[in-house]
Every structure is written in structure tokens, then in C-alpha cells.
Nucleic acid binder design. Structure first.
Length: 433
RNA sequence: GGAGGGGUGGCAGAGUGGUCUAAUGCGGCGGUCUUGAAAACCGCUGUGGGUGAAAGCCCACCGGGGGUUCGAAUCCCUCCCCCUCCGCCA
């Protein structure tokens, strides 16, 4: 949520920044300000009336105490009209405020000044590249072929259980998935200073609102209800990312400034309806309804927000380096950025069998946009309450990491060599048929 | 699923229609005293909003929302959450 005060004070700046997203949201600024003005006009009047009513009520109390009933009754009659007007104005204020906030909740965050201007993914600048595309003396297989030959994933039976877009990991495949999760959690807790948390996988609507998933992307979530009781529908959702519960851990709190920075790492499965998404229904692991992810979340002071973002990306990159994978880091341009983000780096890992890069991590600084939505603040040394910056990043997403790993480390004989760092976790140096 | 109890400031805890401007205690901050500290004493100590250059003034908030009333922490309705016991259950 943007700061209403920023809209009042610098509407042109807000319009200019929103316009860089190419989504047309800048036209909403005037609507929001009109409602805000309506609210304040009515509020000024109603508060004045309330002050008067409070004074008169106190007088009535005093008169009652002195048994001057007739005088008290006269005052009561006089005040009744004020009460009616207050009821009216209260309603106007509440409606204007609700309309204003509904609009405001649908306006995305402002891109940071350092973000490249651009229209879509084609305009995303490449920041750096690690390694290079490996050469193979043979034609590299796709992860689908490898997964079937090595019996890592049973695509047909996964679909039999839950439909297209759901995976059944089997044997070494299941073991590899579990090894990756443990490797990532250990890496980020032991070497990068994150605190491990394990959140609920079913979360309240307010968590989804807090991180900016709702109201705009409601159609992308799986809603759950209790049994067949439709009245419970709309309260709880399957998490689309651990960001949703973990970023909300401290919602509606005022953290002592000394407690920052807070750094959390969490493993969770992620559930996405992917309604209308390209690539859905394509065989394989690239786009599925359920995948595992290890997520990194930071709550930090605004002064350190962007340094922390750089560190966060580095932390995610370490995963790929340790696994011997070639990747590149790109910076999402203004037109390609997510709703809540001010600045986002994506990490794309090379998948030889696909012959393309796969997005395995998205690291964002949402500045105070989410903190404001969830009313999370921290107290400065001066005793002032401020909204912290909230950052999130995948560290990393698994199904695609799995793809890159098996495709990259496949051997001429059809086996997959396990990178050194992962061997203690999986308990083998090679997966063969 | 059934029965019962509860939700008040950082914490504990009073308050059941009118100086509640929420008692009191603890904790915290500042001060007096002291060589220093403790004790004692004094003062301050929540959140958001409106207005204003500022100081200030005003409004709202006792789990959320709504209602009754001139006036609600207090009465009524409704929802949420927590606790205890019973049943079922990994």
C-alpha cells in the first residue's frame, strides 16, 4: 500500500513512477485523492460536532447529578439533532475511506529510481553471469527423459492422483528433492545467518492481502473450505509461497529497532492455480501446481534495505554456485516487476536439456509497501514508529532447480553425477538406472 | 461435535451507564538527593487520524464489526481469538 500522504504531497511524482510500469495505474491517483478530500471534509465537520456533543453530554451528567431534570431534558433534546447529523457524517467518512483504501490497495508499488525503464521481459538488463553453458559430447536429454529413465518422477501416476500439473517423485527423485531442501536450509541458516521457521501451509486471507497477493491475484490462489460447508470458503488459502505467512509473522507489531534486521528462511510447498498461465499443461516440471521452495525473508530498516537486497541475491546465488550450475542474474525492468516490489532481481539457471534459462529465484525489496499493508512497524532509537523494508527472495525454487541439476550433470551413460555439496545429503555420488 | 470460562495500557489487574481525563501495582524513562549506587520522593510513560509553520487544539481506540442512549470499557446483537473439560482423531 502506498502512503496516502505521499499521494497528497507529490501526486505528480507518484503518477510518473506508476506510469513506468506501463499498467495504467497512474490514472487512479486522482480518484484516490478525490475520495481522500471527501473524507477529510466530512471528517473535519463530524469531529467538531463530536467535540460539541461530548461537552454537552458532560453538562447533562452534571445536571443529572444536581437533580435538575428539566434542564437536562432540554439539553438532551437539543443534542439529539447533533447525534443524527453525526451518524450521517460518520457514514460518509466511512464510505469515502473504504472506497479510497479499496482503490489504494489495487495500486502497485513504485519502482525504485535505479530500476531500468522498460516494457516487458525483453527489456530486462542482465547484471552478471556465472559460469558458461556446458558442452556435451552427446545430445543432452531433457529432464523428462532423464526422470523417466532414472525413475525419478512418475508423471503419469502424478497426474492420475491429482491431474495435470502435479508430480509424483519416486525413489532417487524423492530423495534428491529432500536432499535439496535440507541442503538449502542448512546453507542459509549455518552460513548466511537466517533463522529457520516452518509456517502453516494454509493461511488466512489477511496474510495474502499483507504481501499484496490479494485483492488483485485472488483468482490465482487455491481457496480451501471445511468439508462441504461453503460458508467457510474465502477465509483460508493454500500458500502460493512461504513469503505470504513468513513476511506476516510480525504483522501488527511494533518491533524494537534493536531487533532488526530479522532474517527468516522457510521451506514450504507452494500451490498455484496458474489460471491462464502459458506453459501450463506442458509435460514436465517447469510449470506445475505444486512445487517446493526455500524462501528467504528479511525485515530491515529503510537505510539498509538495498544493501540487504544485494546480499539476499548473493545468498541465493551461492546455492547455484555450490551445485555447479551456470546462471545469470537479471534486473526486472519497470514494466516486468511484480505488484508489491520496488526492485527485483531474477536468477535464471541454465537448463541444457531445455536449451534455455529457467527462473529459479526472484529477489525483491518491497520497501515499506507490504509493511504498511500489514501494519508492521519498528521503533527507532528516537522513539518514532516507522515502517520497515520487507524483502523476499527464493533461495531457491525447487522443481526447476531439480531440472537444471539433472540436465546439467547428466553423463554420456545416462546417469546423473551429484555435485560434491549435495552428496552428504543424498548419500550417493551418482544416480544411475 | 458438545459443555463451560475468558479477551482492559509493556505486564499484572480494578472498573457493570455520567469528572473514566481508565484506579492501583510492577516495569521503563527523566529528575531531586548521593562521592557513586541503592532506597525514598517527584514527574513522564500507548496507537492512529484531523487541523496547524509550530506550539497546540480536537477526534477515535478497553478483541473486530454493528446497535441502544444526550452519553458505552460498562447494556444488546454478531463475528473472531484464547483457555478448561468431554467426545472423535494423527
Amino acid at each position: 500500500m502506498l502512503d496516502i500522504k505521499l499521494l497528497r504531497e507529490k501526486p505528480d511524482f507518484v503518477r510518473e513512477r506508476l506510469a513506468t510500469r506501463n499498467a495504467g495505474d497512474e490514472s487512479r491517483v486522482s480518484e484516490v485523492l478525490a475520495l481522500d478530500e471527501q473524507r477529510r471534509v466530512a471528517l473535519a465537520e463530524v469531529e467538531q460536532l463530536k467535540a460539541k456533543r461530548n461537552a454537552v453530554s458532560k453538562e447533562i451528567g452534571a445536571l443529572m447529578g444536581q437533580k435538575k431534570i428539566a434542564e437536562a431534558d432540554a439539553k438532551k433534546a437539543e443534542t439529539r439533532a447533533i447525534g443524527d447529523r453525526i451518524t450521517e457524517l460518520d457514514k460518509i467518512v466511512a464510505e469515502a475511506e473504504s472506497a479510497r483504501d479499496t482503490l489504494l490497495a489495487r495500486i502497485p508499488n513504485l519502482p525504485h529510481g535505479s530500476v531500468a525503464l522498460g516494457k516487458d521481459a525483453a527489456d530486462n538488463p542482465e547484471i552478471r553471469v556465472h559460469g558458461s553453458r556446458p558442452d556435451y559430447a552427446f545430445k543432452p536429454l531433457t529432464h523428462i527423459e532423464l526422470a523417466e529413465k532414472l525413475k525419478l518422477i512418475d508423471f503419469a501416476r502424478g497426474a492420475k492422483l491429482s491431474g495435470s500439473g502435479f508430480l509424483l517423485y519416486t525413489g532417487w527423485g524423492a530423495r534428491l528433492e529432500r536432499a535439496l531442501i535440507n541442503f538449502l536450509l542448512d546453507l542459509h541458516t549455518a552460513e548466511h545467518g537466517y533463522r529457520e521457521v516452518a509456517p502453516p501451509y494454509i493461511i488466512g486471507e489477511h496474510c495474502m492481502f499483507g504481501v499484496g497477493q490479494f485483492p488483485k491475484f485472488k483468482d490465482q490462489a487455491y481457496a480451501v473450505q471445511e468439508g462441504l460447508d461453503g460458508s467457510t470458503l474465502g477465509k483460508l488459502y493454500l500458500l502460493p509461497t512461504a513469503e505470504a505467512p513468513v513476511a506476516n509473522i510480525h504483522r501488527e507489531e511494533i518491533l524494537p529497532g534493536a531487533q532488526l534486521p530479522v532474517r527468516y528462511v522457510a521451506y514450504s510447498p507452494c500451490f498455484r492455480a496458474e489460471a491462464g498461465a502459458a506453459g501450463l499443461g506442458t509435460r514436465g516440471m517447469i510449470r506445475v501446481h505444486q512445487f517446493d521452495k526455500v524462501e528467504l525473508i528479511k525485515i530491515v530498516t529503510p537505510e539498509t534495505g538495498y544493501d540487504e537486497l544485494e546480499q539476499l541475491v548473493t545468498n541465493a546465488e551461492t546455492v547455484l554456485k555450490r551445485l555447479g550450475l551456470h546462471y545469470r542474474v537479471i534486473n526486472l525492468c519497470t514494466g516486468d516487476m511484480g505488484f508489491s516490489s520496488s526492485k527485483t532481481y531474477d536468477i535464471e539457471v541454465w537448463a541444457p536439456g531445455q536449451g534455455s534459462y529457467l527462473e529459479v529465484s526472484s529477489c525483491s525489496n518491497c520497501e515499506d509497501y507490504q509493511a504498511r499493508r500489514m501494519n508492521l512497524r519498528y521503533k527507532t532509537e528516537a522513539g518514532e514508529n516507522r515502517f520497515p523494508h520487507i524483502l523476499n527472495g527464493s533461495g531457491t525454487a525447487l522443481a526447476r532447480l531439480f531440472v537444471a541439476l539433472v540436465e546439467t550433470h547428466q553423463q554420456a551413460d545416462g546417469s546423473v553425477l551429484i555435485p560434491e555439496a549435495l552428496r552428504p545429503y543424498i548419500g550417493t555420488d551418482r544416480i544411475s538406472a
